[in-house]
Write a protein that binds this DNA or RNA. Structure first.
Lengths: 151, 151
DNA sequence: TGACAAAAGTTAGACATCTAACTATAATGT
DNA sequence: ACATTATAGTTAGATGTCTAACTTTTGTCA
């Protein structure tokens, strides 16, 4: 055992992010980066979402989400609206142009999965997901335990 | 199969990097980040290295490595020297202060591995490394195949 | 009911990283 | 031998992300 899983995951993460950027450019979406994809992914699922929900889903901070949505609004894929329930909230929705990209995004996402899973058998793919979930749950539990200590 | 391995690895990567930053601060190394750790790791192994070697080992670009070494020199952990063989090359070496941190870095590195591997059995740990290596090799092969096409 | 705390979002400033362009030196080929 | 090409490293400028601080609105509770 080389105990290098963290390094391996870092490398895989780097390569997949880089590849994704290339795909987005190839799809005519210069200036759109993988994090924007996470924002759009939630909108494709839910139709609309608050900044807060988008930030949580994309695992980014709210300031970062502000910038991400600024960009998506600038290129015309989403629109900000005032919430009717809560005057503090902003609701983000897809424009027609944004909705039109649903298919492209699904295709890129499928291509990414196939790229990563192709060297693995079905069993191996499932095993990998199981092991990663174990590791992640454990890290999140440890993190929560530590932040709870500072009460 | 959820095909979410990429997302899981991204999350694990984020959490481990964040934790590492905290450990470095706790070790009195404010301003030193995980990438600096990669630079130091090679110096702990080889004693000295050129900028080019450090960049390759840390998987960063040479401009980034310039900045990393600037910082390490500023906090007194390494020193730049002119190479005697090649006037273009810079050789980076550890200072006494840098050498003194060997133990702390080994401890942090061990703690990180234990954090990640603790929820896994020995067999599972080995399996995880095997699967990640498969995925990474495949991605690197695909990348090389694509860049070769543009000849 | 009115003060104070919590939450949603933005702005400002910092930082790690990247690509492109530049300087200086070494290697190569005719 | 000299011109061209390649390599080592740095500088300059851009970008994605973060934390801290701020504004506005909502919730709480004495």
């Amino acid at each position: 055992m080389k105990h290098d899983a963290v390094m391996l995951m870092g490398r895989i993460h780097d390569l997949t992010q880089k590849w994704l950027r290339g795909e987005l450019v190839a799809a005519g979406l210069s200036g759109v980066v993988p994090s924007h994809g996470d924002v759009l992914a939630l909108l494709f699922m839910k139709g609309e979402a608050t900044m807060h929900e988008l930030a949580a889903f994309a695992h980014r901070t709210r300031p970062t989400t502000t910038v991400l949505v600024d960009k998506l609004e600038e290129v015309g894929l989403v629109r900000r609206m005032q919430s009717e329930d809560d005057a503090r909230s902003v609701v983000v929705v897809l424009t027609a142009e944004g909705e039109a990209l649903r298919g492209s995004f699904a295709a890129i996402s499928k291509k990414l999965a196939s790229r990563v899973y192709s060297p693995l058998s079905k069993d191996e793919g499932e095993m990998l997901e199981k092991l990663l979930n174990k590791v992640l749950s454990n890290l999140e539990a440890a993190k929560n335990a530590e932040s709870a200590k500072s009460d």
